[in-house]
Design a protein around this nucleic acid. Structure first.
Lengths: 260, 260
DNA sequence: CGCTCATTTGACAGAAATCAAAAGCGGTGG
DNA sequence: CCACCGCTTTTGATTTCTGTCAAATGAGCG
């Protein structure tokens, strides 16, 4: 699409950006991208750092470049709920609102392409084609969130666990940025990006129940444990079977994504 | 905001539209609204009619004017999952996508302000200020959906039932369109817009468990049964108490809304 | 090595799903 | 008007699953 942006050296930072082709900025022309690059800056956060706190002024927005960001909601009782996970190329922060209804926290060490919310807002209003692309992104996000809602509301814990693992097996190869480097492994690897406590919260269960379900899958030779956070899918049909979904539905989920 | 649109007679259909002030079209100027009115038309659907089917070409988009639309997702097992409910002023249909990932179905008799998806898409691209307003709408929708996700993943069934009833008590008076006609009833009425089976699916439980929880609330004098689908809230603090949320959180949910 | 924290495992109580049946509601046709 | 039928909702009895509490094991680190 933006071949020019790659052959010319209009914006080094963005040209070499791993997610450029997958985030809303792909709609920007060379010069617009240049402008965008002037208001954005890469920033690293260590695992556990809070990027935007719930109820905060939400002054930062941007894209996840590498690592995983977790989106959380603190409930009255003080319990932290995982509302979603943001992967590379996903948009984070709450544009056009004075406060964020959720917290954004680094689930792993992350690199973010950050912009001041104000600067971003005036930028997109001046560039409708970029705002349009952002709208498409958010619409996909909404679909994905609703699909996840559908998933969680009628499925057993085992089905949710299996679905989660399936999706991670599609995401974990770091394959989402550069399609050409995609090497189809015969035995997909599942890399758990976050701790059991967070996964459990995301799946609406407890670490104990999650652990039991995972161990059950291991005993049934569906997956094999490599280390605490890595598993190998031994029996993919068996895993899909336990999700209670068709392979097609799962594929569509892992593309646009509930977990994003 | 658009006083001119109301004092002038630029567009009779839109001027008298109950939801005009609350939907994305409020961003349109007189002449733009006029243009919009030329591509839109009111249409009635009877309860149970499918407006857009899952996987369909999704050729229609628009706003809910009156009644309630249910958003459903058919899972592999053939079970119908309720993903959300759309109330008056909510946007329905999937813009900018060739197929809808969900079905839109009339949960009650509804009136919709319909547009051809294609006409709508070219329209908003020509009018960035309207597309911007649409983006704001979708961002709110996304927040609301995530908040609902947070709700369902960590709460007991009773808390989900209480929250659902609370939200309906705020929506059921048909009060969401014209703030001036808002008559605060001392005893809010809850009108269940859909059957128990659907509500149960939406809340991630079964009709039996749902029924038991409702009957428990009746026995505890929190609500009083008028007929099968109507209840009166006798003890609002008690109801709020059983949601496990603060009143503030509930208000924000019923405004922007998980159920939308 | 000893510390802390995360994960796994076990035992048990409570909640919800399931199975089964009764009651309520709305329509149809005699 | 009433009896019958199909459907939804409610209620009851039972089983299964999951959350909770508690303890053991394992991983990372100074």
């Amino acid at each position: 699409m933006n071949d020019a942006a790659f052959t010319h050296g209009s914006c080094k930072k963005c040209d070499t950006c791993a997610i450029h082709q997958r985030s809303f900025c792909r709609a920007a022309s060379d010069e617009v991208l240049n402008e965008l690059s002037r208001i954005s800056h890469l920033r690293e956060y260590e695992k556990g750092q809070v990027i935007v706190a719930q109820g905060d002024d939400a002054e930062i927005v941007g894209n996840v470049v590498s690592g995983i960001v977790k989106l959380t909601n603190m409930s009255m009782s003080g319990q932290q709920n995982i509302v979603g996970l943001l992967f590379p190329s996903d948009f984070f922060g709450r544009a056009f609102s004075d406060e964020s209804r959720f917290s954004y926290e680094a689930a792993t060490d992350v690199t973010l392409c950050c912009m001041s919310r104000h600067a971003f807002e005036t930028f997109v209003v001046r560039h409708p084609e970029v705002e349009h692309e952002l709208l498409l992104t958010i619409l996909d996000e909404l679909d994905a969130t609703r699909e996840w809602t559908a998933m969680t509301s009628c499925h057993t814990t085992m089905q949710r666990v299996a679905t989660f693992l399936f999706i991670l097996s599609r995401r974990s190869d770091g394959v989402f940025c550069d399609p050409s480097s995609r090497t189809r492994l015969p035995r997909p690897i599942i890399a758990l990006p976050i701790g059991r406590r967070d996964i459990a919260a995301y799946l609406g269960t407890t670490p104990e129940t999650l652990s039991r379900n995972i161990q059950t899958l291991v005993r049934q030779n569906i997956i094999r444990s490599l280390d605490t956070n890595h598993f190998e899918v031994v029996d993919m049909p068996g895993l899909i079977d336990r999700t209670g979904e068709t392979r097609e539905d799962l594929e569509s989920m892992s593309g646009a994504e509930p977990l994003r």
